[in-house]
Design a protein around this nucleic acid. Structure first.
Length: 222
DNA sequence: GACCAGATGTACT
DNA sequence: GTACATCTGGTCT
């Protein structure tokens, strides 16, 4: 049996590799949300915690296209204390509280004044799994949902506005190649109120249970 | 797989 | 003051 993509992408990096994970540059974020969302798949979300470093490989994200997107918090130019961070420059974290008990983390994209964002919906724990387990209410390490991701990495509103290029929490590229053939494009989740926009295929996720493309091919494609 | 309670911040009247 | 939210976990079928 060839390994699944999940198995390949969950492979733990070495301590040395983790210590060397550098933040993606500002320029990565200063593009439209859809492009950033696609490129975030397979990237590493690194979180510095009091008891160590936790690293998650992103497997599911959603793009929110700003003022023209009825599902976005900034639809129609809405600007409030809550979504203020989305109006700033790309590369910052937008964390909001919802359903009375959950946090969701977004990456702000585009230049200042263009309020787009990418919601981080899920990932695979690859390093510091015990730290993640400790923080999950359920004592598990699964991070297949935006609120689970925040809980596992202890991200809450205190992290709202954090600069992703300045430490604490950041995104990194460890060179793992994600071939387009394993990316699925689906309608977004939980936004039925947004009418027709609920069907826009702006949710991107990896086909984790498909068998992984061979190493040789992956290397050729890099 | 479907269904539902949970608990409160936020936007808007 | 009121309605509802970029959801999760547990229960029931």
């Amino acid at each position: 049996m060839s390994p699944t993509l999940r198995e390949v992408l969950s492979a733990p990096p070495s301590d040395r590799q983790v210590a060397g994970l550098a933040a993606l540059p500002r320029g990565f974020y200063e593009r439209d949300a859809e492009a950033v969302a696609l490129d975030l798949l397979g990237k590493l979300l690194v979180r510095e915690l009091p008891d160590g470093r936790a690293v998650v490989r992103l497997s599911e994200v959603e793009a929110y296209l700003g003022v023209g997107d009825p599902a976005a918090h900034t639809f129609g130019g809405r600007r409030t204390a809550r979504n203020e961070v989305m109006w700033g420059e790309g590369g910052h974290l937008y964390v909001y509280f919802t359903y009375g008990m959950h946090h969701c983390a977004n990456v702000v994209t585009g230049p200042a004044g263009v309020p787009e964002a990418v919601l981080l919906r899920g990932g695979l724990p690859v390093y510091g799994n015990e730290l993640i387990r400790k923080r999950r209410r359920t004592g598990t390490t699964d991070l297949d949902g935006p609120a689970k991701l925040c809980q596992g990495l202890a991200i809450d509103r205190a992290d709202n506005g954090t600069d992703l290029t300045a430490g604490g929490v950041w995104l990194a590229d460890d060179g793992v190649f994600v071939p387009p053939s394993v990316v699925r494009r689906l309608p977004r989740v939980g936004i039925a109120y947004a009418g027709e926009a609920a069907t826009w295929p702006l949710r991107f996720c990896l086909s984790l249970d498909a068998s992984a493309p061979s190493r040789r091919r992956a290397r050729q494609n890099r």
